[in-house]
Design a protein around this nucleic acid. Structure first.
Lengths: 228, 228
DNA sequence: GTCTATATACTGATAGAC
DNA sequence: GTCTATCAGTATATAGAC
């Protein structure tokens, strides 16, 4: 069954290291974890990190590359599917195509939601060397989704859509990070690690927000809602 | 002018260390920066970190405590002021009272927005020892604001309000982190480091989102917008 | 491919002079 | 309060045996 020319999922040291790194980076960030910890978690020798990935950053980069393509391909596949219907994709569908693949673990590619948590944590750290990888893999799909959102929202300027997309990203990252604050405040009622519950709340919430009228650019630079 | 009994803003080593730590922690996180870097940035000897704060974590804790109280006091002060008018505070006003003090630097307390960026980065890291500090300082104001939001939104369950508050926090943190992704995507049009522009976009966006109808709890555990 | 051993640098923390 | 000096531990990375 194990074809040597195309090993499907042999637990080689390389794969073990990738899995361990993904788990630990998502848990403690890049600087918060050592290559020794990763190797120990994978049950392999720490020198193999150098052999397979060059150095620690190469390992993080490999974790990124393993997930970037499948994630964005599924996003775009869902978007294309939704867009085929007459009238094009609804706003809710565009949002679902963007959010669902990031939060729900696919049956073939596990760790999809863990990868979202990883991105959330790493995005804060000084990841100047990852900047290129991120830009190459997320800029184009990002633009595609901004375009799709703009098509659903002809009353908005592109600047408005971009701001709203930025807020959407924040909510997605915060949800993917499994922030426990809301869990504690709610006494366990709200659990962001429940992907389906998060999507059921996040999609209609964001749809209503995106549909709100265009923001007027105030001449005053200090806008306050004190004076109604 | 310098009264010795109450030195207003003498640049003692302690204050220099706090300022340097705040800047560097906000930039690179807790594990990403060393006490030597912080001391060097402050222009003081690294041994003074132990003298004034005990250890590195004590320094982070001191940075937190310096900002927590003024931040939340201003939030609550604004909320009380808005609530005095007949009919109570509007939804937009509750949101402004929560968001503005976190994003705009007060004239007396500088680094308010930097502190929001700090919290954003640290919240991802394993900060189990800060958990207590955060809970003590943010749980009560958080509950107060959830209550105020719920009063504006009688059509929602408390669980709905909590979910939406969670999404609001995500957008706030992501904006406070000065995420550069949107800046690049927009060609500089959208700049989250511009606090007033962020507030002008974020408040009406979130107000519309909070006002959206209650989320129906679906019997199916996989809700999809494919079938309209 | 996988291991041991190690080079080299940096980490947080502290003892003790001034 | 501030300094120098230094401890013990850990970091990443690599050279070289097998």
């Amino acid at each position: 069954m194990n074809c040597p020319t195309m090993p499907t999922s042999v637990d080689g040291s390389r794969q073990k290291l990738l899995a361990s790194a993904e788990r630990l980076f998502a848990e403690r960030g890049f600087s918060g974890v050592s290559v020794r910890d990763i190797a120990s978690g994978a049950g392999v020798n720490s020198a193999l990190v150098g052999y397979y990935f060059g150095n620690k950053l190469g390992l993080l980069s490999a974790v990124y590359l393993r997930h970037c393509k499948p994630l964005n391909e599924e996003r775009l596949r869902m978007l294309r599917e939704f867009s085929r219907q007459p009238g094009g994709a609804t706003l809710e569908q565009v949002l679902e195509a963007f959010l669902r693949p990031a939060l729900v673990d696919a049956p073939d590619h596990n760790g999809r939601s863990e990868f979202t948590r990883l991105r959330s944590i790493i995005s804060g750290e000084n990841s100047a060397l990852l900047e290129e990888t991120i830009a190459e893999n997320f800029d184009r799909p990002g633009r595609t989704f901004v375009d799709a959102l703009a098509r659903c929202l002809p009353h908005l300027t592109r600047e408005d859509v971009l701001w709203r997309f930025h807020f959407l990203l924040g909510s997605l990252y915060h949800t993917g990070a499994h922030a426990s604050r809301i869990c504690i405040l709610s006494g366990g009622q709200c659990d962001p690690s429940n992907a389906e519950a998060s999507l059921a709340q996040l999609i209609p919430f964001m749809a209503a927000a995106f549909r709100s009228p265009q923001v007027l650019t105030e001449p005053a630079d200090r806008l306050s809602y004190a004076a109604v």
